[in-house]
């Protein structure tokens, strides 16, 4: 676990986090690929994770938790639990 992925001093939960495209650069340094285990404070929401990773907190991402869509209005409310799989995907380029 990279130190930047950890928030100290509070009870925390571990989640599996996945992203893609240009958002990969927001993953903790040294991360291989686009998936990482993150430690987040208890009570954290997808929005908190975006802040923790210094991602722009816009509405233009696709957010899913354990494979279920998290609509925009829920992103600051849904509380993450141990071993949750959170995916935040940036817009894609079509063709």
């Amino acid at each position: 676990m990279h130190p930047q992925a950890r928030l100290s001093g509070r009870v925390s939960v571990k989640i599996q986090f996945k992203t893609g495209g240009s958002l990969v650069e927001h993953l903790p340094p040294g991360t291989q690929g686009n998936t990482v285990e993150l430690e987040v404070p208890e009570g954290a929401t997808p929005m908190d994770v975006m802040r923790q990773l210094c991602m722009p907190t816009g509405e233009n991402y696709l957010v899913s938790l354990n494979g279920e869509v998290v609509v925009i209005s829920e992103r600051g409310k849904r509380v993450l639990a141990e071993n949750d799989h959170l995916a935040i995907m940036p817009p894609i380029q079509g063709g």
């Binding site: 233009n60 696709l62 494979g67 869509v69 998290v70 995916a87 995907m89 894609i92």
Partner: peptide, 23 residues
């Protein structure tokens, strides 16, 4: 023209699994 995102919001609360789109 900064990108597009799949239309999946209507699938919230279903068991249809999503990641970058409908798996």
């Amino acid at each position: 023209a900064t990108g597009v995102s799949p239309n999946v919001d209507f699938l919230a609360d279903t068991a249809v699994r999503i990641e970058d789109g409908v798996l």
